[in-house]
Design a protein around this nucleic acid. Structure first.
Lengths: 231, 231
DNA sequence: CACTATAAAAGTGCATGCACTTTTTATCGG
DNA sequence: CCGATAAAAAGTGCATGCACTTTTATAGTG
């Protein structure tokens, strides 16, 4: 009779909230996440908040420092690049599996998603970024492969964090049109094209963070500073 | 002068021990892992044991069921296959980055590792399996990319668990010779060949778990084989 | 004897308390 | 006013205790 106290996912609620806050840039690298503040805000004890932080740390979104307040992670430039490399491979796996296999309903859902994304282009950047990331997660979910879903989500969120650290302002129109193109290729079952489109889409996302390939480390600093200097 | 109570990695010690026990098949899918037994065995409180279990659960090696004793995970057949798919992509990334970039010392270390592996072929299966897995982890570590290392280790261990669930007896000689071939290709900087060798090596590992042929659910055999065949 | 009901045991879930560390604030000499 | 220093506050690390759930052992009944 009483609510089954389904508390296993109280942790999850906190994680989701923080992930979203990060992806929407309400939280930035270095921002503090004290256990008791979190617990208070979410109406749970420190124990639960602590678990959530542990989980997020294992996903690379949070930095746990002994005896210090946990903070939103600050990915290094190299880490950001590596995550993108991995992300490309994982998402290629996704589209390879999805090309030509999407049901009518799935296609409709994806189209609706992109439409919403387009509508959000005019609005606040936070929503736009979140929807853009969600698109990739939704794609992954359509594979029905729990493990792939988990990994793709993880790298997608980490990418978002990197972008928040090193990226220039988000450009929604671009993402929308690229998503539409990809969707078309998937729909007509062109795996080859889908993979290419996904790769180049992610490359352009990475470029926004100046993460484009270059083995030289000397220009990294410049690349890092560029977004702040220009404008 | 007292030991700095470097307790952050007491959790890690437990995790490592359990991971190793799993890979060596001392622990099998379904085996129970009670918090207090663990704590007692490792001389820590339940709290720490619990953290370790949480960590391992997030790596997919342990199953946490509410109010029930944690158990070693039993990957489904599909999960096993998916992990292998992801593993192939990640390890391709590893060898792609390593080909032609290995230092003399690294090559020596790898050769030593394979030698040890060969020596262990005659001994107990546990050691042989562990060394075979380690080879892949060591390779990943040589990329110096923390994130790649983490993901590769994770899928390597998960693969080991799948093998323990579905695999036939381990065949050490096979792994040794394949590792040697790969090492040669890496050494002479032949990225193309390295990637192929890694792919086919992992395919043969997967085959040992009957993950390549359609056991019960053979519906997309082509999709399963695609990553190994292509290119 | 099987089969159920029931009580004890074992185990997890979680809040809490205390020791310890880091951070902040307050105080004081120059 | 500034910098240093000590004291208070804030925060984490972790063991522990108690409520609750599952499992096991026990006893009762037709």
């Amino acid at each position: 009779m009483k609510p089954p106290k389904d508390s296993a996912d109280r942790v999850n609620r906190i994680c989701s909230a923080i992930r979203r806050a990060i992806i929407e840039r309400a939280l930035s690298p270095g921002d503090k996440l004290p256990e008791d503040t979190l617990g208070e805000r979410f109406g749970v004890s420190r124990t639960i908040a602590r678990q959530a932080l542990g989980q997020l740390a294992s996903e690379g979104l949070v930095d746990l420092r002994r005896n210090r307040i946990a903070i939103v992670a600050t990915p290094t430039f190299e880490e950001a690049r590596d995550v993108f490399d991995i992300r490309v491979e994982l998402e290629r796996l996704v589209v390879r599996h999805l090309a030509g296999r999407l049901t009518k309903d799935q296609i409709a859902a994806l189209r609706a998603h992109v439409d919403e994304q387009e509508k959000a282009s005019a609005g606040p950047e936070a929503t736009s970024i979140r929807l853009a990331t969600d698109f990739h997660v939704v794609l992954a979910e359509m594979t029905g492969k729990p493990i792939l879903i988990r990994y793709v989500s993880e790298v997608a969120y980490r990418s978002g964090l990197s972008l928040s650290a090193y990226g220039r302002p988000h450009s929604p129109e671009c993402a929308v049109s690229e998503h539409r193109q990809l969707l078309k290729a998937l729909e007509r079952g062109d795996a080859e094209a889908s993979i290419k489109l996904m790769s180049s889409h992610l490359a352009s996302v990475a470029e926004r963070a100046s993460l484009a390939n270059g083995d030289s480390k000397s220009r990294d600093l410049l690349a890092i500073l560029a977004p702040y200097v220009e404008e």
